[in-house]
């Protein structure tokens, strides 16, 4: 593949130059959590806590049924935000202040929102650093996730025509 084809594979509205501090976005695709991803990923990553995959053992727990694994929920919210905030990312640098509030169950529908907290140059001239704050909600409007995320994103000036 030639570099000249790269920019045609991703969006044109999510380069480093496009992010403005204070902007807030709703990511338009929500997702209903299935055991498909919840249990599969929990097991794929070898999380051994059976409260995520044994319905019977959870009958005596206050929740009464399997709880989804927060690690997957975090990944799902970041995933839902990714086309708008990572499609032109060079690297995920990290996350901070991740808070999980309230239980999430199979069958809940998740929606992600993002606020741009900070933009700054990086050591690379072809990319800049954006710090986002992500919010995750359930179908009843309750907030179940918050977290900050720092991403190294391509500059259009260097990558936009490649």
């Amino acid at each position: 593949m030639k570099l000249s084809e790269l920019s045609g594979l991703t969006g044109q509205d999510n380069y480093f130059e496009d992010f403005v501090v204070g902007d807030v976005m709703k990511h338009v695709r929500s997702k209903t959590l299935e055991p498909l991803e919840q249990v599969m990923i929990t097991n794929l990553v070898m999380n051994t806590a059976s409260g995520h995959f044994d319905e019977e053992v959870m009958k005596s727990h206050p929740a009464g049924k399997r709880l989804s694994f927060g690690g997957v929920n975090i990944a799902m919210f970041i995933g839902m935000a990714s086309q708008d905030t990572a499609e032109n990312a060079i690297a995920e640098l990290g996350m901070d202040r991740i808070r999980l509030q309230g239980p999430v169950f199979h069958g809940d529908t998740l929606t992600a929102y993002t606020e741009v907290l900070e933009i700054k140059p990086s050591e690379r001239e072809d990319a800049g650093i954006v710090r986002f704050k992500h919010y995750g909600t359930k179908q009843d409007g309750s907030i179940v996730f918050e977290g900050e995320r720092t991403v190294l994103i391509k500059r259009r000036s260097h990558w936009g025509t490649r």
Binding site: M46, N47, G70, A75, M95, D96, L100
Partner: peptide, 27 residues
């Protein structure tokens, strides 16, 4: 991140309930 977390569960949080949060995650 999920895999490193998953490998740590038996030692750390198998007898836990609420997973409260994560700080200073870096790659």
């Amino acid at each position: 991140f999920n895999t490193v977390f998953g490998l740590s569960v038996q030692d750390l949080s198998e007898h836990g309930t609420a997973f409260l949060g994560v700080n200073e995650l870096s790659f």
